[in-house]
């Protein structure tokens, strides 16, 4: 079993089923704790987009990545970053807007990034992070780093023009790039069949000359295997596209009670539970005894409980940090309006 504890370098989870299960369980539990953080009033706002139900996409694709690879995610990106080896405490602190978070409390849930793990950033603009992987692919090719760059996005981004511009460029220039669409069936409150006539998204990618595949997110091993083929191909200059179908268990964000979909649909959708399915497979194939899985779940629960404590105990960023990082260190910081007012109002010339 792969060590998925926090580390300074990317630690792709093992592609074996137990490793994938562990990664998915950690994501599930983390996301549940994010919900708890919100309920306890400790989160910075309610713009928290949980990836419960989508864990196989994160775990499967991350298992195919190498340490030198880079990626961008959409706004529902907690799971992907965790699968990549993120420290969940620093993530939780960022979600709480604390100084100890990945972005010192300036980014939050929708803008987590970490250069050490090749995370070029989560994005709150649908499709906004996609073209950056084209640029990362250009860098990789020119600087011969051997890295692949992956863009993760939802089915909602299939409606954004920038995706098609980016797919076209990646195919044209044979860049080491993989586009990963996590099709959770909903763009906010709009079901995928209300947003497109053709849900076979891989066909669109193939039309641009990309390798294209679709895979069922119920089966994390299939996700991992398909992703591995596509990541390897991308590294060899054959960029690709992977659509992973799954079901978003809960509302768009924390305040959304999903009034636009029937309860029966939700209950049926939640049967498509990649964590539960992987657990059943582990037991059925005799890969792990139930007691060991119980112990693992308990260990993960304790680990994720601690993330809330860490976030709660962390300090808020100091007010003066507000003017930092608009430009690089060494460049003059913007003059605060209060300072400016002081200066203008205290001129005694009259």
């Amino acid at each position: 079993m792969t060590d998925t504890r926090p580390s300074a370098s990317p630690s792709a989870s093992n592609a074996d089923l137990l490793g994938l299960y562990r990664t998915m369980r950690r994501i599930r539990t983390f996301e549940e704790r994010v919900g708890e953080l919100f309920v306890r009033g400790l989160s910075a706002g309610s713009m928290l987009h949980l990836s419960i139900g989508e864990e196989s996409a994160a775990a499967g694709v991350a298992s195919a990545m190498r340490p030198e690879d880079t990626f961008t995610t959409h706004h529902r990106g907690h799971g992907i970053f965790l699968a990549r080896g993120a420290d969940p405490s620093r993530m939780m602190a960022e979600i709480a807007g604390k100084e100890t978070g990945y972005c010192a409390g300036k980014g939050g849930s929708m803008h987590i990034a970490d250069m050490a793990l090749g995370h070029l950033g989560a994005n709150a603009i649908v499709g906004g992070g996609i073209p950056a992987v084209v640029g990362a692919g250009l860098s990789a090719k020119r600087l011969k780093t051997g890295s692949v760059s992956l863009a993760f996005f939802g089915d909602g981004a299939m409606g954004q023009g920038i995706l098609y511009e980016s797919m076209n460029m990646a195919a044209l220039w044979e860049l080491p790039v993989l586009f990963v669409c996590i099709n959770n069936q909903y763009g906010m409150g709009t079901r995928v069949d209300q947003a497109t006539r053709n849900e076979a998204f891989d066909e669109r990618a193939r039309a641009f000359g990309l390798q294209g595949a679709m895979v069922d997110g119920n089966d994390v091993e299939a996700v991992a295997a398909t992703a591995k083929d596509l990541v390897d191909a991308a590294r060899a200059g054959k960029p690709g596209f992977l659509a992973i179908s799954c079901y978003r268990f809960f509302g768009h964000a924390r305040m959304d009670k999903s009034p636009y979909r029937a309860e029966e649909e939700e209950l049926a959708g939640r049967q498509r539970d990649p964590v539960k399915i992987a657990r059943a497979a582990l037991l059925e194939r005799g890969l792990a005894p139930g007691s060991a899985l119980d112990a693992l779940d308990t260990e993960i629960a304790a680990e994720m409980d601690a993330t809330i404590d860490f976030a709660a105990a962390s300090p808020a960023p100091p007010l003066a940090s507000m003017f930092r990082d608009v430009f690089a260190v060494g460049e003059p910081e913007p003059e605060p309006v209060r300072t400016r007012l002081d200066r203008v109002l205290s001129k005694e010339i009259r």
């Binding site: 961008t72 070029l120 996609i130 073209p131 640029g135 600087l143 760059s149 511009e165 076209n168 460029m169």
Partner: peptide, 21 residues
């Protein structure tokens, strides 16, 4: 030389700038 895709030209430049070019 790029296709006529201004958003992705700027977006690709962003990604390239973040990764060493």
């Amino acid at each position: 030389d790029t296709p006529i895709s201004e958003p992705a030209i700027i977006g690709a430049a962003v990604g390239a700038a973040m990764t060493g070019l």
